[in-house]
């Protein structure tokens, strides 16, 4: 395999992992816009999505299609409960306290998942077929890669429709811009915040489920994927939706190229180094307009 074929292969791998980062970054953004908090439970949403999928498909032999939506709903419910319980009843509304609360909750969920499923990596069958497709550029593509791209595009289109055309979506955007003003015009801010947690739970689950057949899954797969998703969100400009997509794809492709051409051990170093460089050169991220200060 020549260099150009190799590069094509790395780019395809990078695009698929980048798509995952983009979905995760979207989850971070939605909660950030609603509450200003970095929600580290996002990492657990990814793991849980993968593990629910494994339980339903492999252990309980539920059809793939149904399992997908059941897992998504289950994780969305967990997301909503997390907001409805601990986050809402936290005595302090200071951002740093809430961020660490999400770290605590994330630990609780991860520990619980470890008790339920153990620490082994488990496989989930591909959505359809395992036969690689040979592309004219010399690279090969798994059917699951196509699923990853397809689902990601669908998710993005659905989100776009939700935020542009539905009442709830518009209400959520209003809440993000100004809570008080939104409440004054009759938006139930509490419900919107809960909805944003449910939505990012669903997004995390989708990310965890579509990547599981490619890279297997375990109770803690979400940690690195989640942190990279956060990195992608920051890279693109925190809170920006187009930024999440650009940041995710960029991070995924650079990481994959770096791993392939330089060294696979330094994969994560390269990813985070790029992130730091971009932040230092363009402190608001690629698509960001500067974080609005809450005075």
């Amino acid at each position: 395999m020549g260099l150009s074929e190799q590069i094509a292969q790395f780019i395809i791998t990078g695009l698929s992992i980048g798509a995952i980062y983009a979905i995760v970054a979207m989850g971070f953004n939605i909660i950030h816009n609603a509450t200003g908090v970095v929600n580290f439970v996002q990492c657990e949403f990814i793991s849980l999505g993968g593990m629910f999928m494994y339980t339903l498909v492999v252990l309980l032999r539920v059809p793939m299609f149904i399992s997908f939506f059941m897992s998504m709903a289950a994780v969305a419910l967990i997301g909503a409960l997390i907001e409805r319980g601990p986050i809402r009843y936290a005595r302090s509304k200071e951002i740093i306290i809430l961020i660490f609360l999400t770290i605590g909750l994330s630990g609780t969920l991860r520990g619980t998942a470890q008790q339920i499923w153990g620490t082994d990596n488990v496989g989930v069958p591909a959505f359809s077929g395992e036969n690689p497709i040979h592309l004219p550029v010399g690279a090969t593509l798994l059917p699951q890669h196509i699923w990853v791209f397809g689902v990601t595009v669908l998710v993005m289109l659905a989100l776009r429709h939700f935020f542009k055309n539905t009442m709830s979506g518009k209400a959520m955007r209003a809440t993000a811009v100004n809570r008080k003003a939104a409440a004054l015009v009759g938006v139930s801010v509490d419900r919107m915040v809960m909805l944003s947690f449910a939505l990012s739970g669903a997004l995390g689950a989708v990310a965890g489920m579509i990547i599981a057949p490619i890279s297997t899954t375990s109770y803690d797969t979400g940690i690195m994927l989640g942190l990279k998703g956060f990195a992608a969100a920051i890279l693109g400009g925190y809170g920006s939706f187009s930024g999440a997509i650009i940041g995710g794809i960029m991070l995924g492709v650079l990481e994959s190229l770096g791993a392939g051409l330089i060294s696979s051990q330094y994969k994560d170093v390269i990813a985070f180094l790029v992130l730091l460089l971009v932040l230092f050169l363009r402190p608001t991220g690629i698509m960001g307009h500067g974080e609005s200060e809450r005075v």
Binding site: G104, L105, Q114
Partner: peptide, 16 residues
């Protein structure tokens, strides 16, 4: 892991 997570969460909810 669970115990530490629960402890941290409770702490931050009630004694922030």
């Amino acid at each position: 892991v669970i115990a530490y997570g629960v402890f941290l969460s409770l702490m931050l909810i009630f004694l922030p």
